[in-house]
């Protein structure tokens, strides 16, 4: 048996039965690409305080921070899942009015929740219907009848493209593994033609093999020109994926670092508390 000094890669390859490519981070030059999503002065109580940032086409913007730093709150506020007090959202340079998820989806934003079972999948429905869930209107005839064949065609096509492991597109979504459930949710947003994707803890509860697959998928989506936001509490994950890293602390965006920043830099910003608050805390 290998000892305590066994490298993590060896343990992973022993777990999944093969070596995983631990791709080095390649940061594409997206500076010339247009801004896909811009958020200005987003506010809500103490949870979100004056958050502004932009993501370009083809870029993966990571969101790092401690638990409760307000990253999920920012994502949900952008997506219209929770209300916001103030703040403007621009998609492809146009100011959009988002007050419900329906508005966000119409603007081309897709949100993959950290809690798939509660917020991502209709677990009682099959894979086909979950993939089509955000696009049912497209498959509905004027009198309301569904084009089941069209839905099946798209679902099967995404099952193949994303290598979703399922016996068929009529398998109930709750019977899939975590990684494959996550891919079903990704397929849902791809079918909806979203060009801005917000991934909240995309690999939570997913085995290491599937994790690496999700990473490749995110990179491929960025390469296709999607603007991607990845919220993750795992620093190695943020570092491996992000072209730039936004760091939050106590509801504020404390800084945006270039990709490949050190863990120390991120932790510095993640614990950069507001002086006034720090003083109050100390007293």
């Amino acid at each position: 048996m290998p000892g305590a000094e066994t490298p993590i890669e060896t343990i992973i390859s022993m777990m999944v039965g093969r070596t995983l490519s631990n791709d080095a981070l390649v940061i594409p030059d997206t500076a010339s690409q247009p801004v896909a999503l811009e958020v200005r002065n987003l506010n809500r109580g103490r949870e979100i305080r004056d958050v502004s940032f932009a993501v370009r086409k083809g870029e993966i913007l990571g969101f790092a921070g401690l638990m409760g730093a307000g990253r999920t709150e920012v994502a949900r506020a952008i997506f219209g899942a929770d209300r916001r007090e103030s703040g403007d959202i621009f998609v492809h340079g146009q100011r959009v009015s988002i007050s419900t998820p329906k508005d966000a989806v119409a603007a081309g934003i897709g949100y993959l929740s950290e809690d798939r079972k509660h917020f991502g999948l209709a677990t009682g429905l099959d894979v086909r219907n979950n993939v089509a869930l955000a696009s049912l209107e497209r498959f509905t005839s004027p009198i309301g009848v569904l084009d089941e064949a069209g839905m099946q065609r798209e679902a099967v096509s995404y099952i193949r493209q994303l290598a979703i492991k399922t016996p068929s597109d009529t398998q109930e979504a709750r019977l899939l593994s975590g990684g494959n459930q996550q891919k079903v949710v990704i397929a849902k947003w791809l079918l909806r033609d979203c060009d801005i994707l917000i991934f909240d803890e995309p690999t939570r509860g997913i085995d290491v093999g599937a994790k690496s697959e999700i990473y490749k998928l995110l990179n491929a989506l960025a390469a296709q020109g999607k603007a991607i936001i990845v919220i993750s509490s795992e620093l190695p994950e943020v570092l491996r994926l992000s072209h730039r890293i936004a760091v939050m602390c106590e509801g504020r965006l404390t800084g945006i670092l270039p990709g490949g920043a050190s863990q120390e830099e991120i932790m510095g910003l993640a614990t950069l508390r507001e002086p006034a608050m720090a003083v109050r805390h100390a007293s």
């Binding site: 917020f119 009682g124 309301g144």
Partner: peptide
């Protein structure tokens, strides 16, 4: 066979997921 029926099941399966799908 209809969208109404599909949403009927979807709402019962996971209403919040349906809302977060932009429905």
């Amino acid at each position: 066979k209809t969208a109404l029926g599909r949403y009927t099941f979807a709402l019962g399966s996971n209403e919040e997921a349906v809302r977060l799908s932009g429905v």
